[in-house]
Amino acid sequence: MNIRFSKYKNKKSIVVENNRIRAEFISDPGGKMVSLVGKDTGYEFLVQRPGEVYREQPFDGCYTDGECSGFDDMFPTIDACAYDTEPWKGVKMADHGEVWSLPWEHRIKDNTLELSVKGIRFQYELKKQVFFVDENILRIAYTLVNNSAHDFEFLWAGHFMFNMEEGMRVAVPDDCKEAISILTNTDRAFGEIMHWPHFKDISGEVYRADISRPATSGGFEKYYFKNKLKDGWCELHYPDSKKKLAVSFSADTVPYLGILMNEKGWDNLYNIFIEPCTVCYDRPDLAKRHGQVSKVAAGGEYQWYVDLTL
């Protein structure tokens, strides 16, 4: 294993790699993973944007006007909204959360990359450790610290933007039967229940949602699986049998999974978003109305992890 400093576009970066995987992070902004390469094939799994300058946004800026690539942490919300209980009732929760636009502290210790950031409008610290648990498994372990005297309700989602290929198959646990439509370019209503993997497209035709269609389909559909997962995982099986990616996560603390398959229906990208998350519906107040709450106790901690297996 090797951890070294490098450069990504115009940003200082940190590369974490071994004989199988090369992962690259920037601490400012977002503490984000900007690249994930399987060394066996040389394939870049994460979406890259053109240009030599990283597109930044100010705090509380518009996420999609920024770089909008790679893997960002969405916390403590995805959609901009207002916190709904005291003592922060009415406080604005920024678009796609606070931490993607903020500089993170970083250090290297004991073959581990450590990253951390403190909240702006809320009293928390979000920390993550990046290390290998096996030659082909990269782990990102999270600790959320509540520095306030009040319980804090939040949403965390891993915003993975993976490159897609036509005919790629998505595998999920067997208990993923019903999906809730959240965002689409069809006339499907928000909250409509769909039966995985057979969805209807914009013309009403049934298609397999677990297999990526040609870019000419123009599909764009975000959904969450309705029930909590017993086992947290999702796999991408590429047409080239040498390429396979698994995202696994701690289902006891991250019990939901969202997927957005984008077949050039948005921003001329052909990619898939995989989003393990603590609650659904893209905002914590709306999730709570549907009986979903993730909460860190006053003065307490909340922990989870994500493993990337190539």
Rank of each mutant, 00 (worst) to 15 (best):
V247N: 07
E192F: 00
K242F: 05
W266N: 10
G232D: 11
I211R: 11
D267H: 13
S203C: 04
H195S: 06
G232P: 09
K177I: 14
P214E: 08
K222A: 14
S250E: 15
K226F: 08
I202F: 10
F220T: 04
R289C: 13
S250Y: 11
R208N: 15
V293K: 07
D285T: 09
K288H: 12
L183I: 01
N268P: 00
E178Y: 04
P197K: 01
K226W: 02
V296I: 13
D285L: 05
H237Q: 12
R283G: 08
D175T: 09
N268K: 14
N262A: 03
P284A: 03
I193V: 15
I259D: 03
S250Q: 14
G232I: 03
L245R: 02
L229E: 10
L269E: 15
E235M: 15
K295S: 13
A287G: 06
K230S: 13
L183A: 06
I182S: 03
P214I: 01
T184W: 00
A287W: 08
G265N: 10
P255M: 02
S181N: 03
G219K: 04
V206Q: 10
I211L: 06
I180P: 00
I259R: 01
E192W: 00
I182W: 01
H237C: 10
T184R: 01
E275C: 08
G258D: 08
H195G: 00
K244M: 14
E221R: 05
G218L: 13
T278W: 08
H198F: 07
F190I: 04
N262G: 03
W196T: 05
W233C: 12
F249K: 08
A287K: 02
N271W: 07
P173S: 05
T278A: 09
T278G: 07
D201E: 07
L229Q: 14
I202D: 02
A298K: 01
Y281W: 14
S203H: 10
T253W: 10
W196C: 03
C176D: 07
F225E: 13
D282N: 15
D201C: 01
A215H: 00
K200E: 06
D174V: 06
K200V: 13
L183M: 01
A215G: 14
I274L: 15
S241E: 15
H290F: 14
G218C: 09
C277T: 14
A287E: 13
V172D: 09
R289N: 11
R213N: 04
S241I: 07
I193N: 02
Q292G: 10
D267T: 05
G291N: 10
R188S: 07
T184Y: 00
R188A: 12
S294W: 03
A287L: 13
Y270M: 11
P284Q: 05
Y223W: 12
L245N: 09
D282H: 00
I211N: 04
K264L: 03
C234Y: 06
W233F: 15
K242N: 14
I211C: 09
L286P: 00
K243T: 13
T278S: 15
G219F: 06
A246I: 15
V206D: 08
K200I: 11
Y223H: 12
F273R: 04
H290P: 08
F199V: 08
D267Y: 09
K295T: 11
R188P: 00
N227T: 12
